[in-house]
Structure formats: C-alpha cells, structure tokens
Write a protein that binds this DNA or RNA. Structure first.
Length: 205
DNA sequence: ACCCAGGTGGCCC
DNA sequence: GGGCCACATGGG
C-alpha cells in the first residue's frame, strides 16, 4: 500500500469508529458555525496552547461574563485586564500578550474575519507566524478552523497517531503536514473532519 | 504530592 | 539548528 491508500484507509476507519465526521465535528467544537463563533475558535487556538480544554472553557466563560464577545473587544483591553480574565487557562500573562498581538493584527489589517478570509493562504500564514505567540500549530488551527483554509493541522494528537501507525520516522511538523496534504484531496472540510476525528480518537485513549 | 494538558519563544552551544 | 527551559492553572 502507498501512503495515499494508507491515509485514506485511516480516515475511513476513524469515520467508521466515531460516526459521521459532520456529527463529530459538531461534538468537538460545539459552537463554531457563525462569525462570532469562528472568533471563539481563534481565541481558543491561543488559550489551548499546552492547556486542558476544560480550563479554556472556564476562561471563555469569564470573557463572556465580562461581555468580551469578539476579537475587537479583546483588542481594546489592556494586558493586565485581559490577563486577569484568562487566568484559568494558565500562562495567562504571556497568553494575554499573544491574544493582543493577534487580535490587534486582525482588526488593524482586516477589520474582521470576513475580510481576512479573502486573503491568500500562504500570505496569511506568513503574517500569522510573524506574530509573537503564533507558531505553526496555532497558525494552522486559525487558518483551517477559523478561516476555512485547506491546511492540515499537526498537533500532539496527530503526532501520536503517526507514531502509533508508524507512518513516519521523522516527527517534524512540516514533514508530517506534507505527508497528509500530499495524500489527501485538497479540501478544507476533509482536513477539518479528519483532524477532528484524530483529536477525538486521541482523547479516547 | 505528584502529573498532565491540542505550544511558543528565548537562550545555550 | 537541535536541546533544554520558563510560562501557570485546574483536575485526576
């Protein structure tokens, strides 16, 4: 079997095991359909860095209670105020600065996600990676889940899956990303579903 | 009292 | 250019 067949088979198996990816997609990111909820994905991408999703939920609740409901709202806060709101998600001082870097970048350059979505994938990725606090995984999560761009997210779960199935010896971010992208249809929905299933499978262990 | 969780940047050599 | 380390909270 070549990689295309192996990876295709892997996707099918996960789909069979956990049900239709559409249903699972909803399960995984309960609230990520409309504009406002896309913004939550993007905030979550930073907050969840090396942190349990439970703690991120506590943080998101804090923000909601404080009536901070958008990227724009966050971009206007001071670092200390924001840090106090996001405390439960850990690394709160650094993450506050990261969130300000990102939200101010988005608001200043695009005004919002609607317009940002129209920009070209490669250029967006380069710009995101220039921001302090946005590494490859966070950038790609934002691109794939927040902006519907066809780019495969390589996180701990993806790496674990690769190791378990012995798909590659090199556990290098871009190498693995290429491995998936070169052997799948270039389709953001497929990438979203596949990655969501990988996460569900990983949490299941 | 440990250990872990969907990373990143900064330093060291 | 790879190998450490700090960043910090809440839950098992």
């Amino acid at each position: 079997m070549n990689y295309e067949e192996i990876i295709g088979k892997l996707y099918k198996e996960l789909k069979r095991k956990y049900g239709s990816p559409k249903g699972q997609w909803k399960l995984w990111c309960k609230t990520h359909k409309i504009e406002k909820e896309r913004e939550e994905v993007i905030i979550g991408a930073i907050l969840t860095q090396r942190t349990n999703w439970k703690n991120v939920e506590l943080t998101i609740n804090n923000l909601k209670s404080a009536k901070i409901n958008s990227l724009k709202d966050i971009s206007r806060l001071g670092p200390k105020k924001l840090a106090s709101l996001i405390k439960p998600s850990g690394f709160y001082k650094t993450k506050a600065q990261y969130l300000l870097n990102l939200t101010r970048f988005v608001i200043k350059n695009y005004g919002g996600l609607r317009k940002m979505k129209k920009a070209e994938l490669k250029e967006l990725r380069q710009d995101l990676l220039k921001l302090k606090g946005i590494g490859p995984e966070t950038a790609d999560s934002i691109l794939l889940y927040g902006l519907d761009k066809p780019i495969f997210v390589v996180d701990e779960y993806t790496k674990r899956l690769v190791k378990i199935h012995n798909l590659a010896k090199k556990i290098d971010y871009h190498f693995l990303q290429k491995l998936f992208e070169e052997n799948l249809r270039r389709d953001y929905k497929l990438y979203q579903n596949f990655h969501a299933l990988i996460v569900i499978d990983g949490k299941n262990k």
